[in-house]
Amino acid sequence: MSLLEVRDMHAGYGGGDVLHGVDLTVHAGEVVVVLGANGAGKTTLMRAVSGMIPRRGSVELDGTSIVRESADGIVRRGVAQVPQGRGTVVDLTVEENLRAGAHVRRGKGLAEDLDRWFTTYPRLAERRRQKAGLLSGGEQQMLAISRAMMSRPRLLLCDEPSLGLSPLLTEELFASLTSINQELGMAILVVEQNAMIALGIASRGYLLEVGDLGPSRPADEIAADDSIRAAYLGA
């Protein structure tokens, strides 16, 4: 059984649907990428899965329908999102951001998890008592990933993590997503414009074109496809 199973999902913002019947699957432990240009509906897709905007159709997590679940309930069921623009809580310190990320958790292990992410991203550790709004873009992206991981999710959604980052930082960031996937077995669904680097860490990919999502294909096949190279990879 797949971890996330989306069938015929429609979603939008009041005025009309942006997504017209999307099918999408993420298996446990897998990295899946959704590629799409500006305005294709990538962020809408993420916000629809996490319940931040109204949606219709079928959305199942581990076989249980979450289509009627509230956004906070979906987090409690184990779906964490790294939102576009990083979602930094600028008035809280770095450490408070991480503690807030653990809001849905009960019980022990919080200190260990803080240690883990401060070890993974030492630059966050150096700034743990600073207001998070003072961090650089790259640091805020690290914070966003750590904050999402603090909820101990089963599925991590990443909305354009490369946005506004230098190529070098983008590479570092995707490397750390890979290790989160490999070391923790974390399933990751990432939407990206930066196709090449995203395909590099994914096993499967989808192409999102103005609200329609085709069938998934192996990531290396997409990367080798000339027509897609022309459309998305700038080559």
Partner: peptide, 24 residues
């Protein structure tokens, strides 16, 4: 407290607070 932190997070960034599972 956990509640106090959630209140501050909610006041500062309600969208992020929801994505952290807070009942805004």
């Amino acid at each position: 407290t956990r509640l106090g932190l959630a209140m501050r997070a909610t006041a500062s960034n309600p969208d992020s607070a929801r994505l952290m599972g807070m009942r805004v």
